[in-house]
């Protein structure tokens, strides 16, 4: 357990001291959302209609932005070899790194979301559920994304490849995330959506570190 905490602390420290990744992700998130009124026009009703989807898609793209670096830095400077030969199981190490990644890139998105919801004229009854679904959904994005980030180590054109691998796998999270917000705005309960999102998270939580660790072992061979 000390190992788990040590990795989370180290990755947080690295991210905070560099600072750029978290800021970049949030900036990208905000800018992407702000582009939409220019694209579809400033009509408040249209914006309100598309706001949940726009925010979710932008969050999805933004969380992919920092994904490539998740294992790459450790892979390049040899730390990954040491992490793989350290006493804690590699699955544990991967889980710790994913947690730190989510804290530095997923969580800041949540904080920026209310501002964007206002800019895009999202009906106020959707605020709470939007935050709740992002809270449930972004960890899943980090978990699934970690598999992709591990797979592309050592590949040519890793970044582009990563989006090709990961985006199709993100679709269920997107569907249920947006579905929940739409349901609440339309006056329906969002219980089922939220339950499914939690279910996907519950499946990804044990499986993703396992798959990512397998991919990392291959990368190190």
């Amino acid at each position: 357990m000390t190992g788990f905490a040590a990795i989370v602390r180290r990755d947080l420290r690295l991210a905070l001291r560099q600072g750029s990744d978290s800021t970049m992700v949030v900036m990208f998130f905000v800018l992407t959302c702000v582009l939409f009124p220019f694209g579809v026009g400033p009509e408040p009703n249209i914006l309100a209609r598309i706001a949940p989807g726009v925010i979710w898609v932008a969050a999805l793209l933004a969380s992919m932005l920092a994904l490539e670096r998740l294992f790459l830095a450790d892979y390049e400077d040899g730390s990954l070899e040491l992490l793989a030969t350290a006493p804690p199981p590699l699955e544990f190490v991967v889980a710790a790194k994913i947690l730190a990644h989510w804290l530095t890139t997923g969580l800041p998105l949540l904080i920026a979301t209310p501002l964007l919801a206002i800019l895009l004229n999202l009906p106020s009854e959707g605020f709470q559920v939007l935050i709740a679904t992002l809270l449930l959904g972004t960890p899943t994005l980090s978990l699934i994304g970690a598999i992709g980030a591990a797979l592309i180590l050592g590949a040519r054109r890793g970044g582009v490849l990563l989006s090709l691998l990961v985006l199709p796998l993100y679709i269920p999270v997107l569907i249920f995330g947006v579905g929940a917000v739409d349901a609440v705005i339309g006056g329906f309960p969002a219980r089922t959506h939220v339950l499914v999102l939690s279910g996907i998270l519950a499946v990804a939580l044990p499986l993703a570190p396992f798959a990512a660790a397998a991919a990392l072992r291959q990368a190190l061979e």
């Binding site: 180290r10 690295l14 400077d77 040899g78 730390s79 070899e81 040491l82 030969t85």
Partner: peptide, 13 residues
């Protein structure tokens, strides 16, 4: 303990 080709010293720490 394994020492490989890289020194895995993080530049910011």
């Amino acid at each position: 303990h394994y020492v490989g080709h890289h020194d895995c010293v993080k530049p910011i720490l």
